[in-house]
């Protein structure tokens, strides 16, 4: 977290960007997805599947996770990807960002604690939207799901049904 002071995180946590990505994405490649059901990445993958996203595991050590074929790297995926969701150390992010640009992904999404200004710059230069230090499961649950059922502060205020 020592890096976080140097990064303008708010610039990568824009509510409209997040909402647009969650609403428009269909295919989410999860880099660092674990087959262990107790790992955070598995929670997120499981949740996104339940809510209709096609998830694409990217993990060179596995062949299949959550019922989907696992690819060694982003560049091995033979079909288009909307969001690249990253559960890796910050040091690995620049390389992942370059691959995300190469495969024409629409956005690079870095999970809680995955803070990489360099990775963000590479992705932005390649035309990708970037979300940083945010959880895709939480943001989906906040804007489209049932996070409010557990008393969390969604920040949503509306008089519309």
């Amino acid at each position: 977290m020592t890096q976080s002071t140097a990064v303008d995180l708010a610039a990568y946590q824009d509510e409209t960007t997040i909402r647009d990505l969650i609403g428009s994405a269909r295919t989410v490649a999860i880099v660092g997805l674990s087959p262990n059901v107790l790992r955070p990445s598995n929670f997120v993958g499981f949740y996104l599947q339940r809510h209709g996203y096609r998830i694409v595991p990217v993990n060179p050590r596995e062949t299949e996770i959550l019922g989907e074929k696992s690819y060694p790297s982003l560049t091995d995926i033979p079909f288009p990807v909307d969001i690249v969701d990253v559960f890796r150390t910050p040091e690995a992010v620049p390389g992942i960002a370059r691959e995300a640009v190469a495969i024409g992904a629409k956005a690079l999404w870095l999970q809680f604690g995955v803070i990489s200004p360099e990775g963000a710059r590479i992705a932005e230069d390649g035309g990708l939207k970037v979300v940083m230090d945010r959880c895709m499961k939480v943001e989906h649950a906040r804007h489209a799901g049932r996070m409010h059922w557990l008393g969390f502060n969604t920040g949503n205020v509306t008089a519309r049904r």
Partner: peptide
């Protein structure tokens, strides 16, 4: 796919 609530731009209430 769950519908996203079309709030428009966020506003600080």
């Amino acid at each position: 796919m769950t519908e996203i609530n079309p709030n428009g731009r966020p506003h600080a209430y």
